[in-house]
């Protein structure tokens, strides 16, 4: 690992100022992506800005009809949170499938989203649930935020502060792991929302997380695994590597989507009012 200067701001504003003054400075929270690449010298930021001591950035709370999770909330906290388990059990389950227990004690939701690894789990939930990514500057919809492999809309001095998930009626996440890395070879998140159904896929897309609109339309008519019979995902644009061909991944998407619908249907449906377009979705 190359040398760097270590900064420990007490507030998000201080952190943003350090980023503004130091080109190529990097934020660190859990460090479970950044430190490994720094050790391999694939990244050599001259400045590290540690967010782990910023107070109040790791809260988990319900605000109105949304579940709001602070950027430095750790995967283990989300997985074990009674609030998350009650509001969006699929999200708690997703968090419990990331990495291993020790990794989950350090890795954060904000770090995962900012990195936008094409095999990361959280992006699937954020896109499927239509979550809002709140930064120190603005609020971003997932469609604006995710911009391809390891690329997001975040500006150099922009910091994710929280993520606001509208509570769905039902949801489930099914992950098919790469047996060696344990990352998602394919992961499918299905969410039945008050107004529509969303199906998102991580691990398979060559540009990162994406939606399967053909599945969404079929499931909106009938939220049952059978609704997906005969609908195939095109292998074009899917990853192909020694772990699985694009065709294999396309097949898996269909299988996992059915399993996800089945898993979602096994949970009680939440009584939610129709969305009120005059109400902002972020509390």
């Amino acid at each position: 690992m190359y040398e760097f200067k270590y900064h420990r701001p007490a507030t998000v504003r201080q952190a943003a100022n350090i980023l503004l003054k130091n080109e190529d400075a990097k934020l660190i929270a859990g460090g479970h992506t950044l430190l490994p690449v720094m050790k391999q010298r694939l990244a050599a930021p001259p400045h590290l800005v540690d967010l782990s001591h910023v107070e109040g950035l790791d809260g988990i709370e319900i605000k109105g009809r949304s579940l709001v999770i602070g950027a430095t909330a750790k995967h283990a906290d989300v997985a074990a949170s009674a609030i998350v388990g009650e509001a969006i059990p699929a999200l708690a389950e997703l968090a419990s499938l990331i990495g291993d227990p020790a990794v989950r004690h350090k890795g954060t939701i904000g770090g995962s989203l900012a990195n936008n690894d094409p095999t990361a789990d959280y992006p699937a939930a954020v896109l499927a649930l239509g979550a809002t990514i709140v930064t120190n500057k603005r609020k971003l919809k997932p469609e604006e935020f995710f911009q391809g492999l390891f690329t997001t809309a975040l500006e150099p001095d922009e910091i994710i502060t929280k993520v606001s998930f509208p509570i769905p009626k039902k949801a489930a996440y099914i992950k098919f792991r790469n047996q060696a890395s344990r990352y998602a070879l394919v992961g499918v998140f299905v969410a039945k929302r008050p107004s529509d159904v969303r199906v998102t896929v991580t691990g398979a897309g060559s540009e990162g997380v994406f939606r399967v609109t053909a599945f969404e339309e079929a499931l909106k008519k009938r939220f049952s695994p059978k609704a997906l019979d005969g609908i195939h995902v095109d292998a074009d644009g899917l990853n192909s590597d020694l772990h699985g061909s694009a065709e294999y991944r396309a097949h898996l998407i269909g299988v996992l989507a059915k399993r996800a619908v089945e898993a979602a249907n096994a949970k009680p449906e939440k009584e939610l009012p129709e969305p009120d377009p005059t109400q902002p979705s972020v509390g």
Binding site: Y6, G31, H32, P36, P101, A102, H105, K106
Partner: peptide
């Protein structure tokens, strides 16, 4: 809490 000390500064 269990953490990996090779991936912690």
């Amino acid at each position: 809490k269990a953490v990996k000390s090779c991936t912690t500064l």
